[in-house]
Design a protein around this nucleic acid. Structure first.
Lengths: 141, 141
DNA sequence: CAACGCGCTTAGAACAATTCTAATCTATGA
DNA sequence: TCATAGATTAGAATTGTTCTAAGCGCGTTG
């Protein structure tokens, strides 16, 4: 007998959490289900909380913040800093960069293979490169 | 008779403000003098206010914020977004990129000629590229 | 030179995003 | 089933930034 789409997603979410060593609580499962429904989503705590509310998921804002940070620590999400006023989390943790639409506060992925950066000088003494972020800021018109 | 270093800097600051169409008030002059003492400084509102306080300049925090934004609008400063929790302003408005030392929250310039980025896809329809920011995140060890 | 007006500065309040707190709940392993 | 470590929660607290409204001062005009 066929499983409902929602159940399949919850199973997948449970597997992800298990792999990350996070207890599969109701809230984490529901948030994971929302987050990983598509593989290149860009959310803020606020937007995810709102999305959850619309979907009838009962989760406090504090838990959304906690969960986003835990998922990030577990490598399921990546934080993207492009705007001084809000923090974005990206469900695509692979090698890629971003367009940032400054007018609408929207992020769009640029596949890692497309962009190439050369001539990055060596990191200062005693430091090692953690990541190279490229943000292409675009605006309407 | 030779002018004091401080006076020379204030004159230079006055010239900058005049060119930018900003009234040369005491606060703006003093902040400009501090900011443009070196040509590649990275400050936050907080750090600049503190620096001013140490230097005996009497300026409110609100004015520091106002001034930083006005200088930015006038093209004397550039805002750099690297850290979700604070906003940096850079006195170097030329073409360049940054190292960001994540441990100490410090920025170091990378000259624009050193780095080259290729393969940036065309901006989404109806959008134009405003700027391409590269942040090389490094950490100790 | 006096007076005016507009822009500037200010302290403190307000705000928004995020984190903390401490009480309550729940998944899990014995 | 029970105990417990860990998770969730509402609401308070914190932090960085912006707003507000009152007073000040720079440059101009009469």
């Amino acid at each position: 007998m066929a499983k409902m789409e929602r159940e399949i997603r919850l199973d997948a979410a449970a597997a992800r959490l298990k792999a990350a060593g996070l207890r599969p609580t109701r809230q984490r499962l529901e948030l994971a289900r929302l987050l990983f429904a598509a593989h290149d989503r860009h959310v803020t705590a606020e937007s995810l909380a709102e999305e959850g509310a619309r979907a009838g998921v009962k989760v406090s804002l504090a838990t959304v913040y906690n969960t986003l940070h835990q998922f990030q620590a577990a490598g399921l999400l990546r934080q993207v800093v492009v705007d001084a006023s809000r923090t974005y989390f990206d469900t695509n943790v692979g090698d890629h960069q971003h367009f940032f639409l400054e007018n609408e506060g929207l992020l769009i992925d640029i596949p890692g293979e497309e962009i190439s950066i050369s001539g990055v000088p060596a990191a200062p003494l005693g430091m090692s490169v953690d990541r190279v972020d490229v943000v292409v800021r675009v605006r309407r018109q």
